[in-house]
Design a protein around this nucleic acid. Structure first.
Length: 500
RNA sequence: GCCCCCAUCGUCUAGCGGCCUAGGACGCCACCCUUUCAAGGUGGAGAUCACCGGUUCGAAUCCGGUUGGGGGUACCA
């Protein structure tokens, strides 16, 4: 299973990703896109993006935009496909939106109709439903009876006269279809078990099975790499391909990404929109690495790869057959690793959209060393740095007076300790207001007081940040500055006095 | 129901007939470091390789069956 893929005729491969803009970019679609992208890059082939928007009722420009944006965000780019920002499509096999390819589908359907490979079906939804129910009752597989397959011209005319609008069905040949799946090897399906499926709706809209086959041929796709949920559609597609006289592409079906209960990953049970991960501050490089390893491994113990390195190593034939549970803990860990690998400058830049506007770029740059090891997601920074932009009153509102008091102390003792801290800060030459000086002075004060350093630091931390869990205390004080530190210490003292 | 696919620690995986008394990572536990929380370090628990039969001198690795799980069965994609 090594060596680069080539098309059957020895030419470079052409693969494609064909998302349907009926929802935001889904994690599974993202991984399928990634695997296609990596396969293309690895083999020096062409990667095509096609938007499958034939379902007009559910497709929206917003979802298309979301898909394209987030694919770009992940670093996945295509050689041919629709352009964002209203530009023309790129590539010679366009248009790359199915909604713009209707004439072509219509022409191919005509060919199918003319050759007898497809036929008009006048059955109504009710009739179909009744038939399905009868089959179910008789414990037969529910499939179309083929009733309209052999209609005479007169019968057809009669239906037309009744005003019935026909759907078009593909007359599935009763044969066993074999194909050699890139990932699963030999697979065989008996198409005699299939009913004739609809390829054009009564309203004239062509359906998925038809358009996918027409477009893959029109776009000269050599390798169709898609989710396992399409495995059982493949014999239908092959039958259609043969009826249309197209060259047969190679198929590869990658395993599904699973919910923790091992069912197909769904919005119901998991967070599936890539945009949601992006908004929480997952790094695209972490996402890509995580997704790549969900169902594939380089066979070594290395586990951190860039997109380029993945393209070099990725082997579609080495992809697993079994589904993989989406492990959010692992993603979190990986994201932290990638965050910590960033330089302070890079991290500051990436953090910008996640921290309050009230902090200027210099503030962000200065707080980075304090929080970098504490971030699982970039979005975690918000809470971690909140004390820097909150007002003194907001900070004070985060805690109650009794929270200031350590277990082994009382309110009076705590007040004394905080006063000591306040005095120490007040006496400090502004030029000495640094983390190091603050720390050594506070340690001395704690010793004087006979307090354990940790016990002494805790109320200061709460007073100044409003929180029990914060970045390192003295670095935080330094960032806050002397005046704010003093004011917040005063506020805590006052709170204590009021409570007493 | 029918068709198809799959099966190594809780999870992601290494493994392609002897190197496996099954390796790594995440998570979990303990300890160390430590001003909180993290990060980091060290150690640990955790898989009779789903089960049963074969093939073989030898099987996690090959074959068959069973069980379990999943996907598909639309005038959705």
């Amino acid at each position: 299973m090594t060596g680069s893929l080539t098309a059957p005729d020895g030419r470079p491969i052409r693969v494609r990703m064909a998302p349907s803009p009926t929802g935001p970019l889904h994690i599974g679609t993202a991984r399928t896109s990634l695997y296609n992208f990596l396969t293309a890059r690895h083999a020096g082939g062409t990667y095509v993006l096609r938007i499958e928007d034939t379902d007009a009722a559910r497709s929206t420009p917003e979802f298309e935009r979301d898909i394209i944006d987030n694919l770009h965000w992940l670093g996945i780019s295509w050689d041919e496909g629709p352009q964002v920002a209203g530009g023309d499509d790129v590539g010679e096999h366009g248009p790359y939106r199915q909604s713009a390819r209707m004439e072509r589908y219509a022409a191919e359907v005509e060919r199918l109709l003319a050759s007898g490979a497809a036929y008009r079906c006048y059955c109504s939804a009710d009739e179909l439903e009744t038939a399905r129910r009868a089959q179910d009752a008789a414990k037969e597989p529910p499939r179309y009876s083929g009733r309209c397959r052999t209609l005479t011209d007169a019968e057809r005319a009669a239906f037309e006269a009744q005003g019935r609008r026909p759907a078009i069905r593909f007359a599935v040949p009763a044969e066993t279809i074999h194909f050699d799946d890139l990932i699963r090897g030999e697979v065989a399906f008996d198409n005699a078990l299939l009913g004739d499926f609809v390829i054009v709706r009564a309203d004239g809209m062509p359906l998925y099975h038809l358009v996918v086959v027409v477009d893959d041929a029109a776009m000269a796709i050599t390798h169709v790499i898609r989710g396992e949920d399409h495995l059982s559609n493949t014999p239908k597609h092959i039958a259609l391909i043969r009826a249309l006289g197209y060259p047969e592409p190679v198929f590869g079906h990658i395993p599904l990404i699973l919910n923790p209960d091992r069912s197909k990953m769904s919005k119901r049970r998991s967070q599936t929109a890539i945009s949601a991960y992006r908004e929480q501050g997952y790094l695209p490089e972490a996402m890509v690495n995580f997704l790549a390893f969900l169902g594939w491994s380089p066979g070594t113990e290395e586990e951190l790869f860039t997109l380029e390195e993945l393209a070099e190593r990725f082997e579609i034939g080495a992809v697993h057959k079994g589904g993989a549970v989406f492990d959010a803990d692992r993603l979190d860990h990986l994201n932290g690793v990638y965050i910590r690998a960033l330089t302070d400058e890079q991290l500051a830049l990436r953090l910008r959209p996640f921290v309050p506007d009230a902090l200027d770029d210099e503030d962000v740059r200065r707080v980075v060393p304090l929080i970098r090891e504490r971030l699982v997601r970039l979005g975690d920074a918000r809470e971690l740095v909140a004390f820097l932009s909150e007002t003194d009153a907001e900070v004070a509102a985060h805690y109650a007076a009794d929270e200031l008091v350590p277990k082994k102390a009382d309110a009076a003792g705590t007040a004394a300790a905080l006063s000591r801290a306040r005095a120490l800060v007040a006496e400090l030459d502004p030029a000495d207001f640094s983390a190091d000086v603050l720390e050594s002075r506070c340690r001395e004060a704690a010793e004087d007081l006979g307090w354990k350093a940790g016990d002494f630091f805790r109320p200061i931390r709460l007073a100044v940040t409003g929180r029990a869990v914060t970045p390192p205390l003295f670095g935080s004080l330094e960032l806050l500055g002397r005046d704010v530190t003093l004011a917040r210490l005063d506020a805590a003292l006052e709170k204590l006095a009021v409570a007493a």
